[in-house]
Amino acid sequence: MTYFLQLVISGIVVGSIYALSALGFVLVYKSSRVLNIAHGQIIAGGAFIVYALTVFAGLPIYISFVASMVITFFLAMSVERIFLRRLIGEPIISVIMVTIGLMSILNGVIYLTPFGSLNYSFPEFLPTTPISLGGVSISWTQMVGVVITALLIGAFSWFFKRSTIGISMRAVSDDQFAAMSVGISVPRVFGLAWAMAGLSAAAAGTIIGNITGLNFETLGAFGITVFPVVILGGLDSIIGAVVAGIIMGLIQQFAAGYLDGNWGLNGTADVLPYIILLVILLFKPHGLFGTHEIERV
């Protein structure tokens, strides 16, 4: 039973981090219908900013963390302003190609810094003794990750449901022309969506970096790693990202715990999420919580 509970807790922890990483995709897509392929690079960039502020500038890591979110907020907003603003109204494939190009540019920029190819790790700032209860343990890093994920997802959910700007963003997502006709600034909404995605990416990068260490390849790849989560949850659903993240986390842990190493199986923890994703999409093509759009021809 302890074994099972440990897998559940681990699955929830991993799933929460997936959800936080997927949040950036969802925020951008929810507002602008753009799939940002460069999200993994922003995740990595956020983590490196925290490290640089902490180690090079000597700031306490808590302040670096907040400062990093502020910096990526404005950086992502600038990226949208410089590269994507002009593409409003252009075919979606053009916009996706631009984000692929953006990924290459960000890769190049990061490789110009030492972070591109060397390994780093955050100074220890949390207790190393894990939190244990009934034989089930969770590290402080994981616990803080779960709490930050919960706070950010709660905040974004509230923002989209209750705040005027959030409702404007949903309106833009539903129908850009209708939103414009009632005086909503679509470009401003797009900029804000990217900025919020940048903020969440910095948080995700810091949490992942604190678990795996700061390695650009690992962090940058996370944008793709969480892609099944985004698709499964529904591209435009925050709650979908949470549920799908936790489903994926649990599937991985159970596969690793019960399937891998038995009956000649190996690596099912990496493959099974994709199989289940395909099966679910057969029945729910828009994901678990994605908006089901009806196009009249």
Binding site: Q6, I211, A221
Partner: peptide, 11 residues
């Protein structure tokens, strides 16, 4: 690219 190896280690 595992974030948590609890299952593996316990197995």
């Amino acid at each position: 690219k595992d974030l948590d190896n609890s299952a593996l280690l316990q197995r």
